[in-house]
Nucleic acid binder design. Sequence first.
DNA 1: TCGATATAGTTTCCTAGTCAACTAGAGGGA
DNA 2: TCCCTCTAGTTGACTAGGAAACTATATCGA
Lengths: 153, 153
Amino acid sequence: MTSVSTVSDLTTHLGFWLRMVSNHVSQAFAQKLAEREVTVAEWCVLRTLYGRDPTPPSRVADEMGMTRGAITKLADRLIAKALLRREASAEDGRAQTLALTERGADLVPELAALADRNDEAFFACLAEEERRSLERLLKRLAERGGMRGVPVA
Amino acid sequence: MTSVSTVSDLTTHLGFWLRMVSNHVSQAFAQKLAEREVTVAEWCVLRTLYGRDPTPPSRVADEMGMTRGAITKLADRLIAKALLRREASAEDGRAQTLALTERGADLVPELAALADRNDEAFFACLAEEERRSLERLLKRLAERGGMRGVPVA
DNA sequence: TCGATATAGTTTCCTAGTCAACTAGAGGGA
DNA sequence: TCCCTCTAGTTGACTAGGAAACTATATCGA
């Protein structure tokens, strides 16, 4: 089939390898989080709110790059797990705020340690200089591509 | 809040930047595909079957790292779009095979060109040598991490 | 001050996956 | 030959998120 030659192989794309590695790193982390009954998105919310004053959900949505609807549901789940508190704003009758409960705040350092270990495990096969190089390249790509926010989705 | 200091910032993780860049590259590609009414997963199926003999769905599932159930539904959609054909195996009464229709085969080179352009656009800000370096590092991570298959999910 | 418009959050409907149950055919012993 | 078991694929229940409709409140201008 001669027409095949006009289609480049998937593996020639840097984006292919990027997604391959990124997905594996994230999935491994998701599995570790799952042992604590937490999803990656939930972890991002907890991490976002950690050490902060009560914060409107819309703000969390912006920072996480998710919709408000998604944050509503995420918050519902985290509240059901007693990791989060939702309170009506005193000034604005429309507004709500989200804040960690004590249990939520206690959990964050534990999960952060999981994140540290996960990252360490995957990138251990790179030398210190290679890691710096990879970080530099990725940051440049993020900057030039106008990427911002916590990448969850 | 002193306890904050025990939690490392998300951005210190290479995995964070990896996901950030990977998600943006994939999402930009997804938008381009959407103009042709094709999802990323559908593109992966089409690309997987391009230039191949009729292939059992279980094989496609393995290669794409998705479940059989997902492939059944993906195939249903692609058949509805007349891009794919499903036929019962002659030898094995349980088995099916998937193959591109002519229209499906015609579409693949076009979508592949989109993929080429998407990759080029994102990584244009890196010098040739930097791209090779990034590719080398990602491939090593993929190899050491025992990663295989087309990363869709 | 009251109506028009804008904003915060929630809810509903839709899509796209996984997992597990299920159906149907294949294959292998007693 | 007749089960028993294994395998291929499909289906249904469920999860998670996006888009847009919806509710309630705020704000602005005549």
